[in-house]
Design a protein around this nucleic acid. Structure first.
Length: 571
RNA sequence: UGGCCCUUGGUGUAAUGGUAACACUACAGGUUUUGAUCCUGUCAUUGGAGGUUCGAGUCCUCCAGGGCCAGCCA
């Protein structure tokens, strides 16, 4: 069983929110209880930015022996879907968090919410407004000019009660009436300029409440009251809700509520070369830039899972990025680093040739097969050993051979040179066979029989390359992924460009003629291996058009040779 | 030209008036049957200017830069 606890020597995770909670606890606030909530709207899949919030909320609940509620913020049936509810639950669970019995829906509270609205009306703090959306916008004013009072602002309590009843009863059309809080049309905070708390929505079937309602409460009204009803102590949300906090507090101050949770805001995650906006991810799916929400290029939890990223890596990543109020731009390298760290420890090693080049060992007997032993992990004996067939004809990667070494640092196979075949023998290349176009199609080599598990005498062989036996290898498709966008901040919106303009057309590279070590036949969907010298690869749930197994590259190995090549190329 | 918020190495964070710490990246070495892993070392006087203080990344003032807000979205 994998532990989701941080290692002993790691410094404990702390942040300004945990410090506030610590202070609240010492002050004896909330009877010493800590209750948080993760409140997704079921209108899309969860992404890495949500993971930050999930780890924060569930992490705090765990560490303070409290609870974290999973609450679906389902007040806008127009955009929401039961399929998203299910996907969200699967993803939170997969990340390793459990909400137990604490699964809620804002729609569970539609009746009490309605009663709170009535209470507000009775207190003269809310009114039904007949202004059209366009007129309302005009009355609202701008950032620099105050708004004007609605002509319907001074309706009597009785009239408001009657009108609100009739809104609920379905007497009015969409957009014709709204219920608004009566606060201050001149406030410098636009959220306080008599915000709408109920709107009319006919003809939509809500995934939880069906056709029961034709009026739906707005976020600001719903959220604070849902928090209060559930006894949330700390309501953690992202920075864009900072301006809403006065409204959050206003509703709770006006109404007879069970408790007054504290809203605390933190900055959302910005991850370079991708987008963490549900709207944009929705568009990428809808417009066919990717194959779905779980496309391995997507920063969604489902995409990362299909890519082979583990929950441990994601949680570690969330620990490392921290929680602050500062705008941030996290490098993809940090995520990759946490992925590699986890996979390096846990992924069994295999050999796979992605761009095959045939190699014949001339002094190896035809028809002979030898079964060699290979360690599943070079540093972890407990992961055991496997058997790898070796024969006269093998495949190596095209990149591992050059007729002439480009520089003295090149350690792979060259004409007349020697190299170690990983887990096998040292070979020497004697001859290069080319086709009519001059392309290398085959290598003729000799092997040194004395070099299995032993170094050759009198000489040093520096290079080690991987291989597979041609006769025994299994054919497969391998998909290599690169960053989704070619710009570190694709959604910055500067220079008049749309994030779509930065889409990386080379984000998917499909290799259809790969050969894998025979034992990989038994790989199950979701299994992750290290293909030595290449990277980490995850077996995809599906096969390709030719019914071949598919492996997705989770992340490449760190590649210092590529750096050397790049440096010498730029010189 | 309104209100709210933010600013510590390339990046993300820590330091809660007392020697600027950690991780990632980068660079330089070492080990290695993965150019991986692992190990060692190097890289910031905290946006700017004043002020308070024995002492300021931390407190105060001003300035600069950045973010968010004018959905019947959340």
């Amino acid at each position: 069983m994998e532990s989701n606890k941080r290692s002993e020597d790691a410094r404990p995770v702390t942040n300004f929110i945990r410090q506030i909670i610590d202070q609240d606890l010492t002050a004896g606030k909330n009877d010493g209880k800590v209750v948080t909530r993760f409140p997704p709207e079921p209108n899309g899949y969860l992404h890495i930015g949500h993971a930050k919030s999930i780890c924060l909320n569930f992490g705090i609940a765990e560490d303070y022996h409290g609870h974290c509620h999973l609450r679906f913020d389902d007040t806008n049936p127009h955009k929401e879907d039961l399929a998203f509810v299910e996907a969200i639950k699967r993803d939170v669970q997969w990340l390793g968090f459990s909400w137990g019995e604490k699964e809620f829906y804002a729609s569970d509270y539609f009746e009490p919410l309605h009663d709170y609205a009535v209470e507000l009306i009775k207190k003269g703090k809310a009114y039904v407004c007949d202004l059209s959306p366009e007129a309302a916008r005009e009355y609202r004013g701008t950032l620099t000019e105050p708004g004007r009072d609605s002509p319907y602002r001074e309706r009597s309590v009785e009239e408001n009660l009657d009108l609100f009843d009739r809104m609920r009863a379905g007497e009015f059309e969409d957009g014709s009436h709204v219920l608004r809080a009566k606060i201050d049309m001149a406030s410098s905070n636009i959220n306080l300029r008599d915000p709408i708390i109920y709107r009319i929505r006919h003809g939509v079937v809500h995934h939880q409440t069906g056709a029961q309602w034709c009026i739906y409460p707005m976020y600001d009204f719903t959220h604070c009251l849902s928090d209060s009803i559930e006894g949330i102590t700390h309501s953690l949300c992202t920075l864009e809700f900072e301006d809403h906090r006065p409204l959050y507090d206003w509703f709770l101050d006006q109404l007879e509520v069970p408790c007054h949770p504290q809203q605390i805001e933190f900055s959302r995650l910005n991850l370079q070369y991708t987008v963490t906006s549900k709207r944009k991810l929705t568009e990428l799916v809808a417009e066919g830039f990717v194959e779905g929400w779980d496309d391995p290029r997507m920063p969604t939890i489902a995409g990362l899972r299909r890519r082979g990223v583990t929950p441990v890596a994601i949680r570690d990543f969330c620990d490392r990025i921290g929680i602050t109020k500062a705008d941030n731009s996290v490098e993809m390298g940090l995520l990759e680093s946490t992925i590699r760290e986890d996979l390096n420890i846990h992924a069994p090693r295999r050999m796979a040739v992605l761009r095959p080049l045939k190699l014949v060992i001339e002094n190896y007997p035809e028809g002979q097969t030898e079964v060699l032993e290979a360690a599943n992990h070079p540093q972890d004996e407990d992961m055991g050993w496997r058997k790898v067939p070796f024969s006269r004809e093998i495949y190596i990667d095209r990149d591992d051979f050059m007729e002439v070494a480009p520089n003295k640092k090149f350690k792979r196979l060259v004409t007349g040179g020697e190299v170690r075949l990983r887990n096998a023998y040292v070979i020497r290349c004697d001859e290069v066979i080319k086709n009519e176009q001059g392309e290398i199609i085959e290598l003729r080599c000799h092997y040194d029989t004395a070099t299995l598990g032993a170094n050759p005498e009198g000489r040093k062989v520096k290079g080690v390359i991987h291989w597979v036996s041609a006769e025994h290898a299994i054919a497969a498709e391998v998909r290599l992924y690169d960053r989704l966008f070619s710009h570190p901040a694709p959604d910055a919106g500067k220079d008049g460009k749309d994030y779509r303009d930065h889409f990386n057309a080379d984000s998917l590279c499909t290799l259809t003629q790969c050969y894998l070590e025979a034992g990989l036949t038994e790989a199950q969907p979701g299994d992750v291996f290290q293909f030595e010298r290449e990277g980490y690869f995850c077996k995809d749930p599906a096969t390709n058009a030719n019914d071949l197994p598919v492996f997705n590259r989770t992340v490449s190995l760190r590649d210092s040779w590529a750096k050397i090549e790049k440096q010498s190329a730029s010189r």
